[in-house]
Design a protein around this nucleic acid. Structure first.
Lengths: 240, 240
DNA sequence: GGCTCTATTTGCGCCAGCGCAAAGACATTC
DNA sequence: GAATGTCTTTGCGCTGGCGCAAATAGAGCC
């Protein structure tokens, strides 16, 4: 957490630093601290004092909450260029999620006061942060709608499609989700159990839609998943 | 939507206008337009261009989305002093929810450009708006966690307790939810059906926890609901 | 008071999805 | 390359909650 940083690819194109000149962006980044987070270790834990705002430079993070009785819920995955901890540092005393690296990662962070100063000095930064929050808000709203109105199969399809957007890597036979992803992970993203996820994936594999293995999912037919996620009945889905 | 406004009780104490001097607050309010919304009419519809930021002065609003196949989901109720439309006006082209008055209401609104200017002139306003967004974010996150991990009965208990916080009116025999609230509404807030809500309420009525009628719920024992919402098993709730 | 409309309740049958259990498939380590 | 640990699959039985249908209860209107 020592030396400064300026023009990493992911940071330049970050949602966070959009409307800013290269110069301002550099100034903002110089005020940040770097910190590597090794795979399978936690950057911070739910309940820790929320004193920093972060941006992911490299790698992949998972934000999750755990209920008192030990059930985990994955709030979202973070890809390079995305910010996190904004809402918490703004409003809460403590972080509401635990943050774990699912790959070796590099995060940059500002302490709360510094970030506040920066927002004051660079109103565009404040705007970007707000826009980011607004965007996350909208995503969460959609997720609530999904959880309340859609069946498990459809939710899983949507979750995969979202991951395709965020981290899909095109290969010869389809799109590979470029992160280690267990059945349990998918269950925690969609509000079901690892058993049901496994059964659904098996079924899709039969149908030639996906190809999945240990901690690995390859989507052979994104279009097929879309037709499950949307409404086009792939099979005998009764009217509802 | 004509004459200005300054010091309504609810507005002075609004989450939106917290860190501001009475003077600044007044200036901000003067830049807004007033608009009454009669009970059971819509202020705006999902899909309308998101060109305004609002604050509720009086009454009660319901924000909801509807799925293509006609299922409705209630995102939240708005109480006096609360802002809404912030995220949409910031980021989206169109509003993602429809907004209906469940009581005769009075809203004040700024157009997007004016609000942006105000935020620039009064950084505290920007901070408050951000803090509000962050707070909503957190609420939505909690709701997702609930939907994924908790059973229907518990979700209904939580929804009622939230309403108690927001709109509970203390009466002799308990706390009355001071808004017209159907079983269908509760179902749309908690991701279940009006049938299940009805059954659960009947059961609670038997147990003396609530007293409910047509579009009306009175909580006789908030404490009893809490013990359902939390973990203390009220009866023979098996371990998990 | 009677009519109409909407909200509520409850019996009943059904099924999507849960979760245990046990077996099988990969990876990793030494 | 054998052993260990984790992840995945699938059979099986069960149940929470759904949703139709039909009866009942309020509330407002004339």
């Amino acid at each position: 957490m020592t030396e400064p940083l300026h023009n990493q690819e992911a940071l330049v194109r970050s949602e966070f630093l959009q409307g800013l000149s290269a110069q301002d962006r550099e100034a903002i980044l110089r005020a940040a601290q770097l910190r590597p987070v090794a795979r399978d270790t936690f950057l911070l834990r739910q309940g820790d004092p929320a004193d920093r705002v972060y941006l992911l430079a490299q790698g992949r993070l998972r934000l999750s909450t755990i209920t008192p009785d030990g059930q985990e819920v994955i709030i979202r995955y973070v890809a390079p260029g995305e910010g996190f901890g904004v809402a918490a540092a703004l409003k809460d005393i403590t972080y509401p999620v635990s943050i774990e690296a699912v790959e070796n990662s590099l995060v940059i962070g500002w302490d709360r006061a510094t970030f506040a100063e920066l927002m004051e000095r660079y109103p565009r930064l404040a705007m970007d942060a707000m826009r980011t929050l607004a965007f996350r808000m909208r995503e969460m709203q959609d997720r609530v709608r999904e959880l309340q109105t859609e069946r498990v199969e459809r939710r899983i399809a949507r979750a995969l499609l979202r991951l395709v957007q965020q981290t899909g890597r095109k290969v010869e036979t389809g799109v590979l989700l470029d992160l280690p992803l267990t059945r349990q992970d998918l269950a925690e993203m969609t509000g079901t159990t690892l058993y049901t996820v496994s059964r659904v994936l098996s079924q899709w594999e039969q149908a030639g839609l996906v190809e999945s293995g240990r901690e690995r999912v390859l989507i052979r037919s994104p279009h097929g998943l879309v037709s499950i996620a949307e409404d086009l009945p792939p099979r005998s889905t009764p009217e509802r």
